[in-house]
Simulated assay, not measured.
Amino acid sequence: MRRLVLVSILLAIVVVTLGAYTRLTHAGLGCPDWPGCYGLIDVPETSEQIAKAEAAFPERPVEIQKAWNEMIHRYFAGALGLLILAIAVMAVRNRHQGTPMFLPLLILAIVTFQAALGMWTVTMKLMPMVVMAHLLGGFTTLCLLFLLYLRLTPYRIPGGDWSIKKYAKYGVVGIFILTAQIGLGGWTSSNYAALHCTELPICQDGWLENLTFEDSFDLIPPERDTYEFGHLDHHERVTIHAMHRIGAIVTFAYLVWLAFAVMRRAQTGFFQKVPIILLAVLFAQVGLGVSNIVFSLPLAVAVSHNIVAAFLMLVLITLTYSLKRKI
């Protein structure tokens, strides 16, 4: 079962990557229906298929590359769902052998809801709240699979570091802070606000005067035919982006403090190395965030920014879980 969970983790990373790529290539509506694409299980490519597709969906002309981006993401997500179903079945069958059952069933419930969010992303025409929830659902699935893998792995937590056991609760706080920051990133992306602050460290001159919270974080927006490319005005998008930047500063400061606090008091190599890895991934994430601004959101950097955020969370979970197992 542990190997199956590991394969699922690797596949979940691919799915999160493809989700980011699909979103950043504006392919979220590359297929205007769900779960197929213009009524097909693949993408319309022949002239006859394209003609039928555009007759059925006249408001959405076929863009083959975007459609493939979307469908490939769906194929991999579907495969991940089947693996998670297999894990849940194995957990139920082996429950009398001490195999964790609650966590696999929770992951199955989340990935089922994640499939519904994928459908609503299309049927609700990229409503920001649904897009952000779909992003968070992908991250949650990956993180819970990783937590399950840690639970199934009988690795030894070094003893002798009693002075750092209190930092387990601070690790949990860090997970909540990082989750909130990832959510802000998802809200920034889903509202197409990534390029509305073009200077560092917060935004361009006059950003404070542009702040408006009246509609910037409304979860239920006014009804529109589509939310593709955003529905908010410039001031609202500046507000969203500025809050993401401020959140990044808070997250950075907290995780740096946590890493150095654990590293300074740790006596064993394990608890000295994990904070170093956390800092390395954190600084890589900051570098990618800065590069997004300096180079105007290049696709490779923007996708990497999503993936490194996931790895940052996995390292933080490793540290927190290890500290809690030590108690």
Rank of each mutant, 00 (worst) to 15 (best):
P158D: 12
S163G: 03
A194R: 04
W162I: 02
H231P: 04
A253N: 10
K169C: 00
A168H: 00
T212P: 01
G247C: 08
A248V: 00
Y227A: 03
A248G: 06
T212R: 13
H241F: 01
D218L: 15
Y170W: 15
I202V: 12
L255P: 02
K165S: 11
W187Y: 05
Q204H: 05
G185K: 07
L219E: 05
R245Y: 15
R264K: 15
T212M: 06
W162D: 09
H234R: 13
N191K: 07
F176M: 14
H196G: 03
D218M: 15
I202E: 04
K169F: 00
V238P: 06
D205G: 03
H241N: 05
E223D: 14
G230F: 05
T226F: 13
G159F: 10
R265T: 05
S189A: 03
V173K: 10
L200K: 05
V238T: 06
M263L: 12
A266N: 07
C203K: 07
Y254A: 02
I249Y: 15
T198C: 09
R237L: 07
L195D: 15
G206D: 06
G171V: 01
T198I: 13
H244E: 05
G247N: 07
L184K: 02
E214G: 01
L211D: 14
I175M: 14
E236Q: 13
A266P: 03
I249V: 15
D233M: 07
E223W: 12
R237A: 01
R264C: 04
E214R: 10
K166W: 01
M243S: 06
D161A: 08
T212W: 04
K169P: 00
I202G: 02
A261R: 14
P221C: 02
G206Q: 11
A248R: 03
E199D: 10
Y167L: 14
E209Q: 15
G186E: 09
A253F: 10
H196K: 12
V173L: 15
L184W: 03
W257C: 02
T212F: 05
G160I: 12
A261E: 14
V173W: 13
T239F: 06
H244Q: 11
H231G: 09
D225P: 01
D225V: 04
G269D: 15
E209H: 14
T251H: 06
P222G: 09
E223N: 09
Q181L: 04
R237E: 03
D218P: 07
Y254E: 03
T226H: 14
T239G: 06
H235A: 12
K166V: 01
H241I: 00
D161N: 11
G247W: 08
V250G: 04
Y167W: 15
F217E: 09
V172F: 07
T188I: 00
A193M: 09
G160A: 13
I182D: 01
V256D: 09
Q181G: 02
I175N: 06
G159H: 10
G185P: 11
W187T: 00
D215S: 12
E228N: 09
A253V: 10
I220Q: 04
S163D: 11
L255A: 00
R224H: 10
M243W: 10
S190Q: 13
F229V: 01
V238R: 03
L232S: 08
I175C: 11
A259F: 08
G269W: 15
I177F: 02
V256T: 12
Q204E: 08
E223Y: 12
L208H: 12
D233T: 08
T226L: 13
M243C: 11
G174Q: 09
G174M: 04
G206I: 07
